[in-house]
């Protein structure tokens, strides 16, 4: 059989199919996300700055401890670049200048790097390549960022499904038993009387210890609602008609889940991303609030009241 070049019509339809999935997360015609994205970019740089301040105050354990002064210099650098993004129209350049330093931090901590650092790195990469102040690039940037939000949410739910420790609540039961106290503080009230005490008496390194299951319909419902919610919201965020409501629900879910481990840095980063699905430029409108939240987290690191915002180890 001889090879046949595609006709113009076939080629055009292939191009339409190829383009269509990328466009699922696009804005309706006539809507511009430029200013929205400029605020997103500034908040991303603020996030990096706060992360670097956190690392400079609360050092990572060896062998991942950063060389002396490195993180202080990086914190000042990211803070300066955040200021550049806030005060000038050179935000893309600021992201491009932040990228090597943050990539080096990720490489330094590999392979124990936290997943939200990878996410921040990817977001930074996109903001370095696409300029929201150029019409065509603004469209691609919002599509790309929204796709990342959808994919991370989808896979977070799918992985819980695949690993199989949510159907009967085993993972959460384990965390109540062995995680830091906060897991039982947040979720322990759903368990029958005496169960928290039973679980916390189980030894962590004792083969055969268990069972890490509890008899509580509410607890099982809450466990399964997590992965079902993540999968469903990922799909709903892809639909233009439901994306706004889904984004609000997703923000609520993220904060609910992250309250126990105090992953507020991830919660803020992801909220910044999810707000890109919401009409009315909330990233821009809420920019002062976000910056104040980030500034307060830094203040807590330096001793301001609010230690409950820190992780069990004292970091961010």
């Amino acid at each position: 059989m001889s090879a046949r070049a595609p006709s113009g019509r076939e080629s055009a339809s292939f191009g339409a199919v190829r383009a269509s999935w990328l466009d699922w997360t696009a804005d309706p015609p006539g809507v511009s996300s430029g200013r929205h994205l400029v605020a997103f970019r500034t908040l991303l740089l603020a996030h990096l700055a706060v992360q670097a301040w956190a690392w400079s105050v609360h050092e990572l354990p060896p062998p991942y401890t950063f060389p002396p002064l490195t993180m202080r210099v990086a914190a000042v650098w990211f803070t300066f670049l955040c200021g550049i993004s806030l005060a000038t129209d050179r935000g893309r350049l600021a992201c491009a200048l932040a990228l090597p330093a943050f990539a080096a931090a990720v490489a330094w901590t590999f392979p124990v790097t936290a997943n939200h650092w990878y996410l921040a790195l990817v977001l930074l990469g996109l903001c370095s390549v696409f300029d929201p102040e150029r019409e065509g690039e603004s469209v691609l940037l919002i599509q790309g960022l929204r796709w990342l939000a959808v994919l991370v949410f989808f896979w977070a739910g799918a992985q819980k499904l695949l690993h199989g420790l949510y159907f009967r609540g085993e993972f959460m039961t384990w965390m109540i038993a062995n995680g830091v106290e906060r897991w039982s503080d947040i979720f322990g009230w759903m368990l029958p009387d005496g169960e928290v005490e039973r679980l916390r008496a189980l030894r962590r390194y004792q083969p055969g210890a268990g069972p890490y299951r509890v008899d509580s319909a509410l607890f099982l419902l809450a466990n399964n609602a997590v992965w079902v919610g993540e999968l469903a919201l990922a799909v709903l965020m892809g639909w233009r008609r439901t994306r706004q409501l889904a984004a609000f629900a997703a923000i609520a879910l993220v904060f609910t889940i992250q309250t126990a481990p105090r992953e507020f840095m991830f919660a803020l980063l992801y909220t910044n991303l999810l707000l890109l699905f919401v009409r009315g430029e909330p990233n821009r409108r809420l920019l002062p609030l976000f910056l104040a939240a980030y500034a307060y987290l830094v203040a807590v690191l330096f001793g301001a009241p609010g230690a409950f915002l820190l992780k069990a180890g004292g970091g961010l």
Partner: peptide, 28 residues
């Protein structure tokens, strides 16, 4: 990538929490 990550977890016992597979809070 997360599908490949899941395969690595199952085949080589890679940590689900690491390497960007979005499988944090899935297993202890």
């Amino acid at each position: 990538w997360p599908a490949a990550h899941f395969a690595l977890v199952r085949t080589y016992d890679v940590d689900p929490w690491k390497l960007g597979g979005w499988a944090m809070y899935c297993v202890p």
